[in-house]
Design a protein around this nucleic acid. Structure first.
Length: 469
RNA sequence: GGCCUGGUGGCGGAGUGGUUACGCAGCGGCCUGCAAAGCCGUGUACUCGAGUUCGAAUCUCGACCAGGCCUCCA
C-alpha cells in the first residue's frame, strides 16, 4: 500500500517516497502569534495532524519529525505590544499558550519541534549572509533584498512568471528594488520596535527567510513534505524555495531540492463568505470549543477533502455531532468487547489516496455497521471489527474518548446524580406500569436536555447536544 | 489583466467511462407501554452547450457561475 500525495509543484498525485524512511521530515507553516486562532487557521493543523499520524503509522512513531514554527517577529505583534505597552514576548507567549490549548482541544498532536523565529536569529542572519555572498541578494537603503533574477525557476510552484507579475502588479514597487518581485530579507526596524544586530545593520528579518532558516535549522533540507494553506503558495512558499535553493547552490552535480512534496489545504469560508474582521465573521477556536465538542469541530474540518474549499455553517457542525453520535453509540453497545489490535494498516487505505478523509469517514461507518451486526448476531467477530474501527478512527483522531463520556460529557456530577435519581424513580414507576408517572419524569428529564433510552438492562441517557456556533 | 481552485440529490460530501458511495434530514415498516436508540426498506443527483465514444455526470473544448491568490493572511 503506497501513500499517494498531491504535490503542488508537480500538480499531480505522486507516490510518496521519503529521502530516509528512518527520518521522515514534515514542516508546516505555523501561526503568527498576535491573536487567537480562528477555525480557518485550525484546518491545516488538523489536516496535517492526520498526515503526521499516517506517517507515524507507516514509518514508526520515532521515525517522523514534524516541525511547525511560530512566527514571533511581525508588524502586528509589534503593534499589539505597543498598544499594551509590553514587550513582544508577553504577547507572543500569551498567544502561543492559547494556540496550544486550542489545538489540543481539537486533538491535534503537538509537533516534535516548534521553532520560534526569535530563537533562530543567528540562523536567519547566516542564511542572508550566504545569499549576499553568493550574489543572490543585495543591500539597498538599509534593506537586504532577494534578487529573484538569481533563481531561474522562480514562479514554478505558483505557475507564474516574472512578466505576469509585473503586468499584474497591484502595488507600487519600492524604488530600491531591482525587480518588482524582489522581496525583503532584512529590514530596518522602526523606532521602538525590536531590533537585532546584524552585519547588514540593525533591524529585523522578513517573513519568508524565517521559515527557510528554521526548516534548515530544525530539519535540514531537503525535507520530505512541506505543508501550509493554499494562500501561502505565493509568495511565501515560492520565496522559500528560491532562498533555500540559492543558499545551498554551488554543488554542481546535484539538482537542489528544497521539499520533495508540497501540500496545500483549501480555504474555509463562513456561510460562503471569506472570514474577515471587517465582515465580523471571524470564529475563534477558543470560543467555538466552549460550545461544541472539539472532536466535532475536528470532524467538520475533515468532512471535505483537504484540498477542496470548505464552507463552515451551523448545519455542518450539527451534522458532525450526529455522525459522532452514531459512531459512539455503536462503541457504547460494544463497551464490553476488548478490541483486537489490527495486524496491518489495510484499514487505512482511503487515507493512502491523498488523505481522502470523506472516504475514510464512509469506511468508519461501514466498520461500525460490521461491529454492530457482529454484536447483534454474536458472530465472534466483534473484537476484530472494533479493533479495525478504533485503528482507523485513531489515525483520524476520533473515538478515543469513553463513549459514556461523549454522551454525558456536558453533565457535571450534581446533574448526573439528579438524573440517576430521576431515572431510578421512573424505573419503579414503569415496573408498576404507572406509565403516566414514568412519562412525567421523562418530560422532566427532557427539560433538562436529557434523552432517555430504555433498554433490556434498564435505561441509559445522553445529553442532547447544544446547538453549535 | 495573469495564475489557481471548485460547480454532484433537501443539506454535507466521495467516486467511477457502462453496475443507486457514505453521513444528516425525509418517507414506510419492525422493535417499544409510548418514545429514544437500533434494525429493514425507500425517493431525489451529477451547472449549461458542443465534441470524442456503442455508451459520459465521469474524457476534450467552450460558456456561465462561485471562491481564492497576485499585498499581511491557513
Amino acid at each position: 500500500m503506497t501513500l499517494m500525495l498531491h504535490d503542488t509543484l508537480a500538480r499531480d498525485k505522486r507516490a510518496f517516497v521519503p529521502g530516509n524512511p528512518q527520518r521522515v521530515t514534515l514542516y508546516v507553516c505555523g501561526p503568527t502569534v498576535y491573536n487567537f486562532a480562528h477555525v480557518g487557521n485550525a484546518r491545516p493543523v488538523v489536516v496535517f495532524d492526520v498526515l503526521y499520524r499516517i506517517l507515524r503509522a507507516l514509518y514508526g512513531q520515532d521515525a517522523v519529525v514534524y516541525a511547525r514554527n511560530f512566527t514571533d517577529v511581525d508588524d502586528k505583534i509589534n503593534q499589539k505590544a505597543a498598544e499594551e505597552g509590553v514587550e513582544i514576548g508577553v504577547i507572543t507567549d500569551r498567544y502561543i499558550d492559547a494556540y496550544h490549548a486550542d489545538m489540543d482541544a481539537l486533538f491535534a498532536l503537538r509537533p516534535d519541534l516548534e521553532p520560534r523565529a526569535t530563537a533562530h536569529m543567528g540562523d536567519i542572519i547566516a542564511m542572508i549572509q550566504t545569499l549576499l555572498d553568493k550574489g543572490a541578494a543585495y543591500a539597498a537603503e538599509g534593506h537586504v533584498l532577494f534578487d529573484t533574477a538569481a533563481y531561474d525557476a522562480y514562479g514554478q510552484l505558483s505557475g507564474r512568471n516574472l512578466e505576469d507579475m509585473i503586468a499584474g502588479a497591484r502595488v507600487e514597487v519600492a524604488p530600491y528594488k531591482r525587480h518588482g518581485a524582489d522581496f525583503v530579507l532584512w529590514k530596518p526596524s522602526k523606532p521602538g520596535e525590536p531590533v537585532w544586530e546584524s552585519p547588514f545593520g540593525p533591524g529585523r528579518p522578513g517573513w519568508h527567510i524565517e521559515c527557510s532558516a528554521m526548516v534548515e535549522a530544525a530539519l535540514g533540507s531537503p525535507i520530505d513534505i512541506h505543508g501550509g494553506g493554499h494562500d501561502l503558495i505565493f509568495p511565501h512558499h515560492e520565496n522559500e524555495i528560491a532562498q533555500s535553493i540559492c543558499a545551498k547552490a554551488g554543488h554542481a552535480h546535484e539538482t537542489p531540492v528544497y521539499a520533495r512534496f508540497w501540500l496545500h489545504n483549501g480555504f474555509l469560508t463562513m456561510d460562503a463568505e471569506k472570514m474577515s474582521k471587517s465582515l465580523g465573521n471571524v470564529l475563534l477556536v477558543h470560543d467555538l470549543v466552549k460550545q461544541v465538542p472539539g472532536e466535532a469541530v475536528r470532524w467538520a474540518l475533515l468532512a471535505a477533502h483537504y484540498r477542496a474549499p470548505l464552507d463552515w455553517t451551523t448545519k455542518l457542525i450539527d451534522q458532525s455531532v450526529k455522525a459522532l453520535d452514531r459512531l459512539y453509540g455503536v462503541l457504547q453497545r460494544a463497551k464490553a468487547i476488548a478490541a483486537t489490535a489490527p495486524s496491518d494498516n489495510s484499514v487505512l487505505s482511503p487515507l493512502m489516496d491523498d488523505l481522502n478523509t470523506p472516504q475514510a469517514f464512509s469506511q468508519l461507518f461501514a466498520l461500525a455497521d460490521d461491529l454492530d451486526r457482529a454484536l447483534r448476531e454474536d458472530t465472534g467477530e466483534a473484537a476484530h471489527h472494533k479493533g479495525q474501527l478504533l485503528h482507523l478512527a485513531g489515525i483520524l483522531g476520533f473515538l478515543q474518548a469513553d463513549p459514556d463520556a461523549w454522551f454525558m460529557g456536558g453533565a457535571d456530577a450534581d446533574l448526573a446524580a439528579k438524573i440517576e435519581d430521576l431515572l431510578k424513580t421512573r424505573l419503579e414507576a414503569r415496573a408498576n406500569k404507572d406509565f403516566a408517572a414514568a412519562d412525567r419524569i421523562r418530560d422532566a428529564l427532557n427539560a433538562l436536555n436529557v434523552v432517555v433510552m430504555d433498554g433490556p438492562d434498564g435505561a441509559t441517557w445522553r445529553l442532547r447536544e447544544t446547538q453549535g456556533s
